[in-house]
Amino acid sequence: MTEDRKLDQDVMREPVIEIKGLYKSFGDLEVLKGVDFNLQKGQNIAVLGKSGTGKSVLIKIIVGLLKPDRGSVNVLGKEVNQLNAKELDALRLRVGFSFQNSALYDSMNVFQNLSFPLTMNFKKLSKAEVKDEVMDALEAVGLADKAKQMPAGLSGGQRKRIGIARTLILKPEIMLYDEPTSGLDPVTCTEINELIVEMQERYHTSAIVITHDLTCAKTTSQKVAMLIDGSFTKSENFEDLFDIEHPQIKSFYNYNFTK
Protein backbone atom coordinates (compact mmCIF):
# COMPACT_ATOMS: atom_id res chain seq x y z
CA MET A 1 0.00 0.00 0.00
CA THR A 2 2.75 2.39 0.93
CA GLU A 3 4.49 1.62 -2.35
CA ASP A 4 1.42 2.48 -4.37
CA ARG A 5 0.99 5.74 -2.59
CA LYS A 6 4.61 6.69 -3.22
CA LEU A 7 4.11 6.03 -6.93
CA ASP A 8 0.90 8.05 -7.02
CA GLN A 9 2.68 10.95 -5.57
CA ASP A 10 5.42 10.95 -8.19
CA VAL A 11 2.84 11.08 -10.94
CA MET A 12 1.01 14.07 -9.50
CA ARG A 13 3.78 16.59 -9.07
CA GLU A 14 1.62 19.63 -9.02
CA PRO A 15 2.00 21.96 -6.04
CA VAL A 16 -1.19 22.74 -4.11
CA ILE A 17 0.52 24.82 -1.44
CA GLU A 18 3.60 26.92 -2.08
CA ILE A 19 5.02 29.09 0.65
CA LYS A 20 8.06 31.32 0.15
CA GLY A 21 9.92 33.47 2.65
CA LEU A 22 7.10 33.61 5.16
CA TYR A 23 7.55 35.79 8.24
CA LYS A 24 5.16 36.23 11.13
CA SER A 25 5.63 37.81 14.52
CA PHE A 26 3.34 38.78 17.39
CA GLY A 27 4.69 42.01 18.83
CA ASP A 28 8.27 41.20 19.75
CA LEU A 29 7.79 37.47 19.46
CA GLU A 30 9.12 36.31 16.11
CA VAL A 31 7.36 33.04 15.38
CA LEU A 32 8.00 32.26 11.72
CA LYS A 33 11.28 33.45 10.24
CA GLY A 34 11.57 32.65 6.58
CA VAL A 35 9.45 29.55 6.07
CA ASP A 36 9.65 27.84 2.67
CA PHE A 37 7.25 24.99 2.12
CA ASN A 38 5.70 23.00 -0.68
CA LEU A 39 2.90 20.49 -0.72
CA GLN A 40 2.27 18.44 -3.86
CA LYS A 41 -1.07 17.17 -5.02
CA GLY A 42 -2.03 13.86 -3.45
CA GLN A 43 0.78 14.08 -0.94
CA ASN A 44 0.68 14.13 2.85
CA ILE A 45 3.41 15.93 4.75
CA ALA A 46 3.89 15.55 8.48
CA VAL A 47 5.02 18.69 10.25
CA LEU A 48 6.94 18.07 13.45
CA GLY A 49 8.14 20.61 15.94
CA LYS A 50 8.18 21.40 19.61
CA SER A 51 5.10 23.12 20.96
CA GLY A 52 5.07 26.88 20.57
CA THR A 53 7.21 26.88 17.42
CA GLY A 54 4.37 28.17 15.29
CA LYS A 55 2.95 25.09 13.61
CA SER A 56 -0.62 26.16 14.25
CA VAL A 57 0.24 29.72 13.21
CA LEU A 58 1.57 28.37 9.91
CA ILE A 59 -1.62 26.54 8.96
CA LYS A 60 -3.77 29.42 10.19
CA ILE A 61 -1.90 31.64 7.75
CA ILE A 62 -2.59 29.11 4.99
CA VAL A 63 -6.37 29.50 5.46
CA GLY A 64 -6.14 33.24 6.03
CA LEU A 65 -7.10 33.21 9.71
CA LEU A 66 -3.86 35.08 10.43
CA LYS A 67 -2.09 37.58 8.20
CA PRO A 68 1.61 37.07 7.51
CA ASP A 69 4.03 39.98 7.94
CA ARG A 70 5.68 39.20 4.63
CA GLY A 71 6.23 36.33 2.24
CA SER A 72 4.07 34.62 -0.29
CA VAL A 73 1.44 31.98 0.46
CA ASN A 74 -0.02 30.35 -2.61
CA VAL A 75 -2.82 27.84 -2.12
CA LEU A 76 -4.38 26.05 -5.10
CA GLY A 77 -2.95 28.72 -7.38
CA LYS A 78 -4.31 31.65 -5.35
CA GLU A 79 -2.26 34.16 -3.40
CA VAL A 80 -4.07 34.02 -0.04
CA ASN A 81 -3.27 37.58 1.09
CA GLN A 82 -4.56 39.17 -2.06
CA LEU A 83 -8.02 37.60 -2.04
CA ASN A 84 -11.13 39.56 -1.17
CA ALA A 85 -13.62 38.14 1.31
CA LYS A 86 -15.63 36.31 -1.33
CA GLU A 87 -12.61 34.74 -3.03
CA LEU A 88 -11.20 33.75 0.34
CA ASP A 89 -14.45 31.98 1.23
CA ALA A 90 -14.38 30.14 -2.09
CA LEU A 91 -10.83 29.00 -1.34
CA ARG A 92 -11.73 28.01 2.22
CA LEU A 93 -14.35 25.63 0.91
CA ARG A 94 -11.54 23.76 -0.82
CA VAL A 95 -9.28 23.62 2.23
CA GLY A 96 -10.33 21.67 5.31
CA PHE A 97 -9.04 22.71 8.71
CA SER A 98 -9.28 20.35 11.64
CA PHE A 99 -8.61 22.19 14.89
CA GLN A 100 -6.27 21.06 17.65
CA ASN A 101 -9.11 21.11 20.18
CA SER A 102 -11.78 20.09 17.65
CA ALA A 103 -13.65 23.42 18.05
CA LEU A 104 -17.07 21.73 17.87
CA TYR A 105 -20.03 24.11 18.23
CA ASP A 106 -21.22 23.31 21.75
CA SER A 107 -24.66 24.75 21.26
CA MET A 108 -25.40 22.24 18.49
CA ASN A 109 -25.60 18.47 18.51
CA VAL A 110 -23.30 16.29 16.42
CA PHE A 111 -25.67 16.19 13.45
CA GLN A 112 -26.10 19.97 13.45
CA ASN A 113 -22.35 20.46 13.78
CA LEU A 114 -21.95 18.67 10.46
CA SER A 115 -25.02 20.02 8.71
CA PHE A 116 -24.26 23.64 9.64
CA PRO A 117 -21.37 24.21 7.19
CA LEU A 118 -23.33 22.38 4.49
CA THR A 119 -26.60 24.27 4.78
CA MET A 120 -24.86 27.61 5.23
CA ASN A 121 -22.81 27.17 2.07
CA PHE A 122 -25.15 25.21 -0.15
CA LYS A 123 -28.60 26.67 0.36
CA LYS A 124 -30.08 24.63 -2.45
CA LEU A 125 -29.53 21.26 -0.81
CA SER A 126 -32.73 19.52 0.25
CA LYS A 127 -33.20 18.22 3.79
CA ALA A 128 -32.81 14.65 2.63
CA GLU A 129 -29.59 15.42 0.78
CA VAL A 130 -28.14 17.11 3.82
CA LYS A 131 -29.10 14.17 5.97
CA ASP A 132 -27.46 11.74 3.55
CA GLU A 133 -24.25 13.73 3.41
CA VAL A 134 -24.07 14.08 7.18
CA MET A 135 -24.74 10.42 7.85
CA ASP A 136 -22.16 9.43 5.20
CA ALA A 137 -19.53 11.59 6.85
CA LEU A 138 -20.44 10.26 10.30
CA GLU A 139 -20.19 6.71 9.01
CA ALA A 140 -16.81 7.48 7.47
CA VAL A 141 -15.50 8.34 10.93
CA GLY A 142 -17.44 5.48 12.53
CA LEU A 143 -19.72 7.58 14.71
CA ALA A 144 -23.10 7.38 12.99
CA ASP A 145 -24.75 6.42 16.29
CA LYS A 146 -23.71 9.66 17.95
CA ALA A 147 -25.70 11.99 15.66
CA LYS A 148 -28.12 13.14 18.38
CA GLN A 149 -25.51 13.69 21.10
CA MET A 150 -24.18 17.03 22.25
CA PRO A 151 -20.41 17.56 21.91
CA ALA A 152 -20.03 17.91 25.68
CA GLY A 153 -20.93 14.24 26.08
CA LEU A 154 -18.24 12.95 23.73
CA SER A 155 -14.76 11.67 24.54
CA GLY A 156 -11.64 13.43 23.25
CA GLY A 157 -11.14 10.93 20.44
CA GLN A 158 -14.77 11.12 19.38
CA ARG A 159 -14.62 14.92 19.34
CA LYS A 160 -11.54 14.79 17.12
CA ARG A 161 -13.25 12.43 14.71
CA ILE A 162 -16.40 14.55 14.58
CA GLY A 163 -14.18 17.58 13.97
CA ILE A 164 -12.55 15.77 11.07
CA ALA A 165 -15.94 14.66 9.70
CA ARG A 166 -17.23 18.23 9.87
CA THR A 167 -14.27 19.31 7.77
CA LEU A 168 -14.56 16.46 5.29
CA ILE A 169 -18.22 17.08 4.63
CA LEU A 170 -17.27 20.04 2.42
CA LYS A 171 -15.11 17.67 0.30
CA PRO A 172 -11.88 19.67 0.55
CA GLU A 173 -8.93 19.18 -1.76
CA ILE A 174 -6.44 19.95 0.99
CA MET A 175 -6.71 18.90 4.63
CA LEU A 176 -4.87 20.60 7.46
CA TYR A 177 -4.82 18.42 10.56
CA ASP A 178 -3.68 20.22 13.69
CA GLU A 179 -2.39 17.57 16.10
CA PRO A 180 -5.07 15.01 15.26
CA THR A 181 -3.73 12.44 17.72
CA SER A 182 -2.37 14.46 20.61
CA GLY A 183 -3.78 13.59 23.99
CA LEU A 184 -5.32 10.34 22.79
CA ASP A 185 -4.67 6.73 23.80
CA PRO A 186 -2.68 4.50 21.40
CA VAL A 187 -5.75 2.63 20.14
CA THR A 188 -7.61 5.81 19.25
CA CYS A 189 -4.42 7.21 17.73
CA THR A 190 -4.22 4.26 15.40
CA GLU A 191 -7.86 4.70 14.42
CA ILE A 192 -7.31 8.34 13.60
CA ASN A 193 -4.15 7.57 11.63
CA GLU A 194 -6.09 5.04 9.60
CA LEU A 195 -8.84 7.59 9.07
CA ILE A 196 -6.35 10.12 7.69
CA VAL A 197 -4.87 7.53 5.32
CA GLU A 198 -8.34 6.46 4.24
CA MET A 199 -9.36 10.05 3.52
CA GLN A 200 -6.25 10.51 1.39
CA GLU A 201 -7.03 7.38 -0.59
CA ARG A 202 -10.75 7.88 -0.89
CA TYR A 203 -10.91 11.58 -1.70
CA HIS A 204 -7.36 12.08 -3.08
CA THR A 205 -6.75 14.94 -0.72
CA SER A 206 -3.37 16.41 0.04
CA ALA A 207 -2.70 17.07 3.70
CA ILE A 208 -0.50 18.70 6.26
CA VAL A 209 -0.49 16.62 9.44
CA ILE A 210 0.89 18.43 12.46
CA THR A 211 1.97 15.94 15.07
CA HIS A 212 4.41 15.07 17.84
CA ASP A 213 4.08 11.42 17.19
CA LEU A 214 6.48 9.81 14.72
CA THR A 215 4.28 6.76 14.29
CA CYS A 216 1.45 9.01 13.26
CA ALA A 217 3.79 10.90 10.95
CA LYS A 218 5.07 7.72 9.31
CA THR A 219 1.70 6.06 8.83
CA THR A 220 -0.09 9.10 7.52
CA SER A 221 2.52 10.92 5.49
CA GLN A 222 5.02 10.42 2.69
CA LYS A 223 7.25 13.29 3.69
CA VAL A 224 8.23 15.00 6.88
CA ALA A 225 9.37 18.48 7.75
CA MET A 226 10.51 19.76 11.08
CA LEU A 227 9.89 23.34 12.20
CA ILE A 228 12.80 24.56 14.32
CA ASP A 229 13.32 28.18 15.39
CA GLY A 230 10.88 29.56 12.87
CA SER A 231 11.94 27.72 9.72
CA PHE A 232 11.92 24.23 8.25
CA THR A 233 14.84 21.81 8.18
CA LYS A 234 16.05 21.09 4.66
CA SER A 235 15.34 17.38 4.68
CA GLU A 236 11.99 15.97 3.63
CA ASN A 237 12.46 12.21 3.99
CA PHE A 238 12.13 10.36 7.26
CA GLU A 239 15.54 8.68 6.90
CA ASP A 240 17.43 11.90 6.13
CA LEU A 241 15.75 13.91 8.85
CA PHE A 242 17.27 11.87 11.63
CA ASP A 243 20.74 12.08 10.15
CA ILE A 244 20.75 15.80 10.84
CA GLU A 245 22.68 16.67 13.98
CA HIS A 246 20.35 18.91 15.90
CA PRO A 247 19.46 18.50 19.56
CA GLN A 248 15.73 18.97 18.90
CA ILE A 249 15.66 16.37 16.15
CA LYS A 250 17.64 13.96 18.32
CA SER A 251 15.30 14.38 21.25
CA PHE A 252 12.30 13.80 18.99
CA TYR A 253 13.89 10.62 17.73
CA ASN A 254 14.92 9.41 21.16
CA TYR A 255 11.54 10.15 22.66
CA ASN A 256 9.73 8.19 19.98
CA PHE A 257 12.02 5.20 19.64
CA THR A 258 13.70 4.56 22.95
CA LYS A 259 10.60 4.55 25.11
Binding site: L93, A103, F116
Partner: peptide, 25 residues
Amino acid sequence: AELGSMKVTEQIDAMEVSAINPFKY
Protein backbone atom coordinates in the same frame (compact mmCIF):
# COMPACT_ATOMS: atom_id res chain seq x y z
CA ALA B 1 -19.91 34.76 27.86
CA GLU B 2 -21.31 32.83 24.91
CA LEU B 3 -19.28 34.60 22.24
CA GLY B 4 -16.26 34.70 24.54
CA SER B 5 -16.27 30.96 24.99
CA MET B 6 -16.83 30.46 21.27
CA LYS B 7 -13.83 32.68 20.66
CA VAL B 8 -11.42 30.98 23.07
CA THR B 9 -12.43 27.47 21.97
CA GLU B 10 -11.87 28.52 18.33
CA GLN B 11 -15.51 27.98 17.34
CA ILE B 12 -15.52 31.42 15.72
CA ASP B 13 -12.40 30.49 13.74
CA ALA B 14 -14.07 27.21 12.81
CA MET B 15 -16.97 29.12 11.26
CA GLU B 16 -14.59 31.36 9.40
CA VAL B 17 -12.63 28.46 7.86
CA SER B 18 -15.85 26.82 6.70
CA ALA B 19 -16.64 30.00 4.77
CA ILE B 20 -19.34 31.16 7.18
CA ASN B 21 -19.13 34.82 8.19
CA PRO B 22 -19.21 34.63 12.01
CA PHE B 23 -19.73 38.36 12.33
CA LYS B 24 -22.95 38.15 10.35
CA TYR B 25 -24.10 34.92 11.93
